[in-house]
């Protein structure tokens, strides 16, 4: 199914990405309107993270393009904020939480001009928004996984963007971080921002997001979740592994196994 979107904030056209001669994404075509909270959902290896990286120009594309606000990314980088996976960096790095959040201001300020007092104020404000005000000067190695994820969110906020692309912000976080993140995403959406979130957990996806992009190398469907979350489309996305997954999590719940992804 494809819905025609007028004035999409994010438009992906004919996008194909190959990884060692094999397609990681095949002919992806969709648009996202302004002010929605979108979950990109699909099985492991479906190319969810690759999709975001391709939109951010971080992996080479074989064909197609992605436009933000009707322009190429280079024209509008200031308005697009990217949250990488937490595991993509070394958290033993000698930096404080505030140091990392201030990186969100580098794009506006340039690398060579001094950061202003306003930059510092915005950064502290963003740390407060994610509930880490008291941890500003804490070294990032001493933060919990969930707190580290929130530092990444605060950095994205500090960029004061209009479109947010987040790679697995809910992966392996504690309940407090999950709640904070959800509230934050809701607030951003209510301010008219557009948020695209790669999400690995099918169970919570329906509850968290307004829109869903179902992905499994090819685009299976996208649109408001009521239209997309149908048994047929989910079956098409996950194939046989959907029932398997459901069985495994059911088993885990029964036996009280500590299963986390």
């Amino acid at each position: 199914m494809t819905t025609a979107i007028a004035d999409p904030v994010l438009e992906v056209h004919d996008l194909t990405v190959t990884y060692r001669q094999k397609p990681a994404l095949w002919d992806i075509d969709f648009g996202i309107p302004q002010g929605v909270l979108v979950g990109v959902v699909g099985p492991n290896g479906a190319g969810k993270s690759t999709l975001i990286k391709a939109i951010m120009d971080l992996v080479p594309t074989a064909s197609g393009y992605a436009n933000c606000f009707g322009q190429s990314l280079d024209e509008v980088r200031q308005r697009v904020s990217y949250v990488p996976q937490r595991e993509s960096v070394d958290w033993d790095f000698p930096a404080s939480a505030l140091d990392v959040v201030l990186m969100g201001r580098y794009g506006k300020r340039g690398l060579f001009r001094r950061l202003s007092n306003r930059d510092r104020r915005v950064a502290r404000e963003c740390l407060r928004t994610v509930g880490l005000e008291a941890f500003a000067d804490r070294q990032i190695a001493q933060l919990s996984g969930g707190q580290q994820q929130r530092v990444f969110l605060a950095r994205a906020l500090a960029q004061e963007a209009d479109l947010y692309l987040m790679d697995e912000p809910f992966a392996g976080v504690d309940a407090a971080t999950e709640r904070t993140t959800l509230e934050l995403l809701g607030e951003l959406r209510d301010q008219g921002k557009t948020i695209v979130v790669v999400h690995h957990d099918l169970q919570t996806a329906a509850e968290y997001f307004d829109w869903i992009v179902l992905l499994n190398t090819r685009l299976v469907a996208y649109g408001p979740k009521a239209e997309v979350f149908t048994p047929e489309l989910l079956q098409e996305t996950y194939g046989g592994s959907l029932t398997l997954l459901a069985n495994v999590s059911e088993l885990a719940r029964k036996q009280n196994l500590p299963v986390r992804e």
């Binding site: 951010m56 120009d57 990217y82 960096v89």
Partner: peptide, 12 residues
């Protein structure tokens, strides 16, 4: 050094 992915994302 800390986060090459983010650096590239903001155009550095």
């Amino acid at each position: 050094t800390f986060d090459a992915g983010y650096a590239a994302a903001i155009g550095i």
